[in-house]
Nucleic acid binder design. Sequence first.
DNA 1: CTAAATTTGTGCAATAAATTACAAATGCTT
DNA 2: AAGCATTTGTAATTTATTGCACAAATTTAG
Lengths: 218, 218
Amino acid sequence: MKVAEPTVERLIQYYRLMSSMKEEGRKVVSSLQIGEILGIKASQVRKDLSYFGEIGKRGVGYHVNRLCTHIENILASPRVWRVALAGVGNLGAALMGHAAFKSYKFSVEALFDVDPEKVGRKIMGVDCFHSDEIARVMEDRNIEVLLLAVPAVAAQSCVDQAVRSPTLKGILAFTPATVIVPDRILFYRVDIFVELEKLLFFLKEREKNNFQPAGKLI
Amino acid sequence: MKVAEPTVERLIQYYRLMSSMKEEGRKVVSSLQIGEILGIKASQVRKDLSYFGEIGKRGVGYHVNRLCTHIENILASPRVWRVALAGVGNLGAALMGHAAFKSYKFSVEALFDVDPEKVGRKIMGVDCFHSDEIARVMEDRNIEVLLLAVPAVAAQSCVDQAVRSPTLKGILAFTPATVIVPDRILFYRVDIFVELEKLLFFLKEREKNNFQPAGKLI
DNA sequence: CTAAATTTGTGCAATAAATTACAAATGCTT
DNA sequence: AAGCATTTGTAATTTATTGCACAAATTTAG
């Protein structure tokens, strides 16, 4: 039973929404209401939510607490993933400091940087090593996931080192650089500049057509 | 003639690759080679590139300089977009400091923050205003695009202010918060934590199936 | 208790995107 | 100059994703 990527993405959104509704004390919600808030068609919401079994109640809607727990189970981790962050510049710091970064799904077990000011110290409670030690430390500390927040020029060399550790399973990269990664490693990318380019491109298209061809909502 | 989003995304990748090949002095490249580097099927590359007219040469491949200019024209801006950045924390600073952020396609005309240390000063040459002034300043300075790098709790209020300016056309948000945006505004989102959740989810799925069902490459 | 109003779950249709397969064009080799 | 090896462009097909429409379940009102 495999789940499509767009479905997982929406499940995460539903989960966030249910969490906040739970806090507000809301008890029940319909697919139409979920859809309106998130900019998704109600039928899509129902299809996504029913994929893992009947969880709603006909004529009523979805029970917020129940749905929340349900999605939590679907998205649950089998264990706490061991993560390392390479690049403790502004972006890395932004990540570390972000509330959403404190998750029970993973723990940050090592940092890497080339700045002598940072190497050898603990930053926010985590040991920072020199980037030359990525392979060794990742294996020693049994790191499964690498978050790559280094400058574009350093990206490939960090990846090359990281994949030498047999413990590595996935990489999430925040760099516009093209990197080569072996098939056995799951690779995801967050590319701010691609998104910005896309926004400007479709802004131009809208202007050309002189008005709005219904872009993305939320 | 409308262009699909996945196509635009790949065009941006092709453009980056061609730029770097151009610098390396490479003259010719085939769809197969492009595809291997970027993790895209050669046929997909050809379909994307031929969409705007025949640009390659059969039996030979694509001329790097020519292809570079070609894609540049497709992605070109009609003018320099006027952009503002709300939230000059770590993430905002990371953006401002990034090499890829210096583009001839847009110029940053205003910053917004609530920190009294920053408000009223120039940061990297750009005036920083208090977030309460978003609506006024955006209209005064004719800002068309807002980059939203504020904490989740502040996101909706910033958007509400920004959409009051009739000059606003698009928003790129870096927040996991759900925000309501009117249809006339083009809205894009970069959500690091959704990507991280997706990575962990599919890592779990791989493990469950005991081995790799060919994930995303690059 | 019956009828009307909601709202889910889901088979089927429609749309979007990726892949295949191959003719046409080009260059290289002999 | 003829034949072979490349490589593009694209029509046709396949796969993926979304949207529609309606039966089934539930609640509310009279």
